[in-house]
Amino acid sequence: MGLTKSEIFTEEQNKLALVAKAFGHPARIAILQHLFKLNSCVCGDLVNEIGLAQPTISQHLKELKTLSIIKGNIEGTSVCYCIDQDEWQKIKGLFMQFFEQDSLNQGECC
């Protein structure tokens, strides 16, 4: 498998690709939807809500946390996760800018 050569792409292109990859798994989408619905969550609740094993949920949470999409606070023996609203707004802005590129070019194509 070839290298991605991420250094030849802009910071924005790399960030979009990383977030898109994180969104590429339905379990992560389900986790995010659940966190938005409750505005916070304990990991055990996610296991019951999504129906995956605890280690699997933890791995998906780690991916989302690595990208700063979510943040977690230790509460006793549990970790309470929530959406990082500042990061979420940045991600929304990046994707909105990306998806609105088509409105800049209204001319004929091919």
Rank of each mutant, 00 (worst) to 15 (best):
I50N: 00
E108K: 15
E87W: 05
S103R: 14
I57R: 00
I74C: 06
G2F: 12
N105I: 14
C82N: 12
Q54W: 06
A17M: 13
F99E: 09
K37I: 06
E100A: 14
A27G: 12
K92P: 07
E12T: 15
L38H: 10
Q101D: 10
K62Q: 09
V42M: 10
G93V: 06
L35C: 02
I70G: 00
T77P: 08
G44W: 01
G72M: 06
V47D: 03
L46S: 00
A22F: 04
L94C: 01
I50V: 02
V19K: 00
L64N: 02
G76L: 06
I57H: 00
W88V: 14
E108Q: 10
I29K: 04
S68M: 08
L52P: 02
W88N: 12
E100P: 06
P26E: 08
E63H: 11
H25A: 10
K92A: 08
V47P: 02
A22N: 07
N105F: 15
D86R: 03
C80G: 08
G24I: 03
I50Y: 01
K90D: 12
C110I: 15
R28T: 04
C80L: 12
F9K: 06
Q97K: 15
L35W: 00
I83Q: 01
I69W: 02
L18K: 05
Q106G: 11
H25T: 09
C80N: 15
V79S: 05
K5E: 13
I57P: 01
E12R: 15
R28Q: 04
I50L: 02
I69E: 03
L16S: 04
K15I: 09
I91E: 03
E108P: 13
L18D: 07
F98Q: 12
V19M: 01
H25I: 04
Q97V: 10
G72D: 07
I29N: 03
G51H: 01
G2S: 13
A17P: 05
L3A: 10
L94T: 01
H34L: 07
E100C: 14
T56D: 06
T4Y: 14
V19S: 00
S78V: 06
N14I: 10
N14R: 08
A22W: 02
S58T: 08
T56P: 03
P26D: 08
N14C: 11
L16G: 03
K65T: 12
S6M: 13
C43I: 13
L67A: 05
I31F: 02
E12M: 07
A17I: 09
C82S: 15
K62Y: 07
C110T: 13
I50D: 01
L38V: 09
E11M: 04
Q54N: 11
S68D: 15
F23G: 00
T66W: 07
